[in-house]
């Protein structure tokens, strides 16, 4: 295996285009242990962290641009970003230990295509977009469309993720993400739930987006929960409807981390709590 550290998107593209067994990486948190355990090595490991654009965190006024390899510790440590998108910032901060936080990135979390990725539901409720570079230039698609199944993405040969774009929330809008793990740290999410809500001045919900992680092969949007919220206040009734809809939207598996019944039940609980937390953030005028 050869290590390469290109300094531009174009250079990375040409390395990737010339070799079908080449692989890009950012944090390498999966790549290095896999190689050590004797799994086949890529021909070239292309380190994206020397490309400035992929390590950036840009405030564009109405939106944020996050480099695909930007460490999540840079997001959680940025007050303005965390103030605009508290749920996404919190989700990004849940990826592994402090050690991992200096390597993990939204791009890596997304392109690993784990059903349990913490940041992906939070990106999805914020309608984040993925900017993908390929031989024919770049294309931009919704983050929700990137992952096609466990371990697989829609990225074609020679393509790689360059950055994530997220619009700042409109007025009276905020987000939240919660996950269930058996310990307090260091676990993979058994269930994750993200919510973004908009409330009018009288506290009625005018828009809502809810997404679940680790309960299906890919992130699940819950339109029935969103419908149940819009048009009324956040109440015990609407939250119960959110929980029921979230549980119903799950298509989980039994595995070493949780059972089907458990995931279904807790998805409802976390969806409800995430809505409540996002609503509280709106009422508190932003980040809570």
């Amino acid at each position: 295996m050869k290590y390469a550290a290109p300094t531009s998107v174009e250079e990375a593209q040409s390395l990737l285009a010339g070799d079908a067994d080449a692989k890009v990486f950012a944090g390498a948190t999966d790549l290095v242990p896999q190689m050590r355990a004797g799994r086949p090595e890529p021909s070239i490991a292309i380190d994206l962290k020397k490309i400035d654009r992929l390590m950036a965190l840009g405030d564009n006024g109405g939106s944020w641009t996050i480099g695909a390899a930007t460490p999540t510790s840079s997001l959680t440590g940025n007050g303005a970003f965390s103030g605009d998108l508290p749920g996404l910032s919190y989700a990004a901060g849940l990826i592994g230990s402090d050690q991992i936080q200096n390597r993990s990135s939204l791009g890596g979390n997304l392109c690993n295509a784990s059903p349990a990725a913490d940041s992906v539901p939070a990106m999805v409720v914020n309608d984040a977009r993925a900017v993908i570079a390929g031989a024919d230039g770049t294309r931009t698609i919704p983050v929700a469309d990137v992952v096609t199944g466990p371990g697989s993405t829609c990225l074609g040969d020679g393509e790689f993720l360059v950055e994530i774009e997220v619009d700042k929330p409109t007025a009276n809008t905020s987000d939240a993400y919660l996950r269930m793990i058996p310990r307090t740290e260091m676990d993979i999410a058994v269930v994750g739930a993200a919510a973004r809500v908009t409330l009018d001045d009288s506290g009625n919900c005018t828009a809502a987006t809810i997404a679940l992680g680790a309960v299906a092969p890919t992130v699940v949007r819950v339109p029935d929960a969103e419908t149940a919220l819009v048009g009324g206040p956040i109440s015990d009734e609407s939250l119960a409807a959110v929980a029921a809809a979230a549980s119903a939207a799950c298509n989980p598996i039994d595995d070493k981390r949780g059972t089907i019944a458990y995931r279904r039940q807790v998805a409802g609980v976390l969806a409800k709590r995430a809505v409540l937390q996002a609503a509280e953030r709106v009422q508190n005028g932003g980040a809570a």
Partner: peptide, 16 residues
């Protein structure tokens, strides 16, 4: 610590 940042050295490629 790599450039002041906490890291697991088992997850970093040596040439990095």
């Amino acid at each position: 610590l790599m450039d002041g940042k906490l890291n697991c050295s088992c997850l970093i490629l040596a040439p990095e």
